[in-house]
Computed example of a mutant assay.
Amino acid sequence: MSFQERGRMAFPEYTGARCYMMPFIQGRGDSLPEAFASYREVVDRFALPDQEGELGLITIDESFVEAGRSQRGYGAGGRTIHTEACLSGENLSWGPTWGPSPFVRLERSTRALIANSLPDTCMVWDVDVEDTTRDGDLSARADQFPREAGRMMDAGEVIEIGIFTPHEPIRQRHSGPRQFFRIVGHGVHGREDYFTRNEHLERMGLLH
């Protein structure tokens, strides 16, 4: 199964908090810096299966989105469909691969948990797609992913996906704040300069 529901979460009060692929300890809310303390209860509750206590990477994106736009869209066409993995030749990487050798290498078994605060703003498909572009974009092939064949996520619904699971941020009908939450599990090797550091975890001596 490409995706699986893992429960429901209550998003904390919106503050505009943002971090990207920040290291933390799965299942340990105290491994988050004070700036993200409102998410500690969520982290205590959710971890990838059999990965509690292991290193993970968390993304929190709280931002105001205008009507007719999607919070995390970047696709090449009228719709934005993508996978977390980017495949270029034999290289399986995270994020756009601008150089000949990606900084971050992925294992095929890498999984992620995703959730968002608004209903009807993210759709997932129960398939694995490996023949993606160098930046994971499938938008030019949108006709292969009809929305009636996908699963629209509810607000606070936590879904486990694989790195080859296609998903699509949906344009919001109304302007307003949206909160996105993601945990990436083991199988990520290396880091990009733009990944958020967790100095709190470093001071705890849990990150080497």
Rank of each mutant, 00 (worst) to 15 (best):
M1E: 13
F3K: 00
F3P: 00
F3Q: 00
Q4T: 14
E5V: 10
E5H: 10
R6P: 05
R6D: 05
G7M: 14
R8V: 13
A10D: 15
A10E: 15
F11E: 02
G16A: 12
A17S: 09
A17D: 07
A17W: 04
C19F: 14
M21T: 03
M21P: 03
P23Y: 14
P23A: 07
I25C: 04
I25V: 07
G29N: 15
G29C: 13
L32E: 10
P33W: 12
P33D: 14
P33N: 14
E34Q: 12
F36K: 08
A37H: 04
A37K: 04
S38F: 06
Y39P: 02
Y39R: 05
V42T: 11
V43H: 00
A47P: 02
P49Q: 14
P49E: 08
Q51W: 12
Q51G: 05
G53D: 12
G53P: 13
E54M: 12
T59E: 10
T59F: 08
I60A: 06
I60W: 07
E62F: 00
F64V: 10
V65Q: 01
E66R: 14
A67I: 04
A67E: 08
Q71H: 05
R72G: 02
R72T: 06
G73A: 07
G75L: 09
G78I: 06
T80C: 09
H82G: 00
T83D: 05
E84C: 02
E84I: 03
E84F: 04
E84Q: 05
A85R: 06
C86A: 11
L87C: 11
L87A: 09
G89R: 13
N91Y: 10
L92K: 07
S93M: 07
W94M: 00
W94H: 01
W94Q: 00
W94N: 00
G95K: 12
P96H: 14
P96Y: 15
P102E: 10
P102G: 08
E107Q: 05
R108C: 13
R108T: 13
R108E: 15
T110L: 06
L113H: 06
I114Y: 06
I114P: 00
S117G: 03
D126H: 07
V127L: 13
D128M: 13
V129F: 05
T132K: 04
T132I: 05
T133D: 08
T133M: 10
T133G: 05
R134M: 15
D135K: 08
L138A: 03
S139N: 12
R141N: 11
A142H: 11
D143C: 14
R147L: 11
E148M: 09
G150K: 04
M152T: 08
D154K: 14
A155H: 01
I159T: 05
E160W: 14
I161S: 08
I163L: 09
F164N: 08
P169H: 04
P169Q: 07
R171Q: 07
R173G: 15
P177V: 09
F181E: 04
G187F: 02
G190M: 01
G190T: 04
R197H: 10
R197M: 07
R197P: 00
N198I: 02
N198P: 01
H200E: 07
E202C: 10
R203N: 09
R203K: 09
M204S: 13
M204Y: 11
L206R: 06
L207W: 15
